[in-house]
């Protein structure tokens, strides 16, 4: 239990971020017209690609003699980038069609 309490004290600010972001996320989605559900889902999909930062940190910290870590990290960077870049480009393509009509 002590560890858990300790952890809470140490990560207090992060826990606040979690709580606040939950409300922000709900507020944002709550007002979206259904027209934009697909682009929004796709845009959100690209944003969670932020996991790439973790992949970069893992890759950058990997011991150069540890082949498994290098390969797994490299794979993680590629997959994360696919998520980010692919996600944003697909979303942009969808939204391009909305903008054209004006």
């Amino acid at each position: 239990m002590d560890q858990l309490l300790n952890w809470f004290t140490q990560h207090q600010d992060m826990i606040y971020i979690v709580i606040l972001m939950i409300f922000v996320g709900i507020e944002i989605i709550g007002r979206v017209p259904s027209v934009l559900h697909t682009p929004l889902m796709s845009g959100a999909n690209a944003i969670h690609g932020v996991v790439i930062i973790g992949a970069i940190i893992v890759m950058g910290n990997a011991d150069t003699t540890d082949i498994t870590a290098l390969i797994l990290g490299f794979l993680a960077v590629i997959l994360g980038t696919l998520n980010v870049v692919g996600g944003f480009v697909v979303t942009d393509r969808m939204l391009e069609m909305f903008n054209k009509k004006k």
């Binding site: 990560h11 992060m14 971020i17 979690v18 972001m21 939950i22 409300f23 922000v24 996320g25 709900i26 944002i28 989605i29 709550g30 559900h37 929004l40 889902m41 959100a44 999909n45 944003i47 969670h48 932020v50 996991v51 930062i53 973790g54 940190i57």
Partner: peptide, 21 residues
Amino acid sequence: LYDNTAMLTGGILVGAAGTLL
């Protein structure tokens, strides 16, 4: 894991919005 605010914000934001959707 990395005390990384950008990952936390982005991830939770999408997690909450996606769950509500």
